[in-house]
Amino acid sequence: MVATRKINSALAPNPRITEEREITSSPLSNFIQETLALTKRLLIQLQRRPSSLMAGVIQPFMWLVLFGALFSKAPQGLFGEDLSYAKFLAPGVIVFTAFSGALNAGLPVMFDREFGFLNRLLVAPLASRYSIVAASTIYIIALSFIQTAVIIAASAFLGAGLPGIAGLSAIALIVFLIVLGVTALSLGLAFALPGHIELLAVIFVTNLPLLFASTALAPLDFMAGWLQIIASLNPLTYAIEPIRYLYLHGDWAINTLVMNTPWLDMSFGVVILILLAFDALVLLAIQPLLRRRFA
């Protein structure tokens, strides 16, 4: 009976094709192909389950409204000459929102690990398994840009004003830099920690404390001395301060002093360099975690 069955060529192996594919396609184009496909998957998920995006947009909006109301009766001039708290707060909310989103970047990867979907990726002949990391990063950066755009629009509506084109590009660059570093950190943890419970624990412990230990809600000179030092080491502060300067001052240049710390005043260029250094440090630090998994 089996012998009389028609042979189906669709089911035949084709080692020659496999061989050819291996030889002729360049690793770079393979890497791009797999990264785009993995990014597309994450975007389809976002489109079909938009609740996380909605929450990600509604939450900062609530920060703006609630924190704005919380300090609305603060004495005039407390946050600087003729400065409303809304104007002061917007940069903090922009950076904090991008930061929270990036901190959660590892969660989908962790769930893929736990549900076994990651195995599907790991048995495939990926040009490099860094495409998994790259796709998550692209996705989170895209998400952060959407959120940032919404917050900027909402803040403008609430009276914070709107920076010019150059200012907006500078904001995009800063958001990109902080998201890149934090996303990498979160992805590193997603591969290093045993499960999502542990990852969530890390997220809870870092999220709000880093917010309060930054200049997002209050300027540096409001803080106790010890907190000033911590806030001056917090990468969030390095993202918030230049954006705040852009919001408060029309004209700025690469050598404009935008940030004061207890020990040093820093120009726009120096702050960007420090954010770059932060990214480089994180990317280096997660190498061993990823290599252990991807070897």
């Binding site: 594919r21 192909q33 496909a37 998957r41 599907r120």
Partner: peptide, 10 residues
């Protein structure tokens, strides 16, 4: 389609 991309099918 995702699977095809992971195996680099043209």
């Amino acid at each position: 389609e995702l699977q095809a991309a992971l195996y680099h099918l043209p």
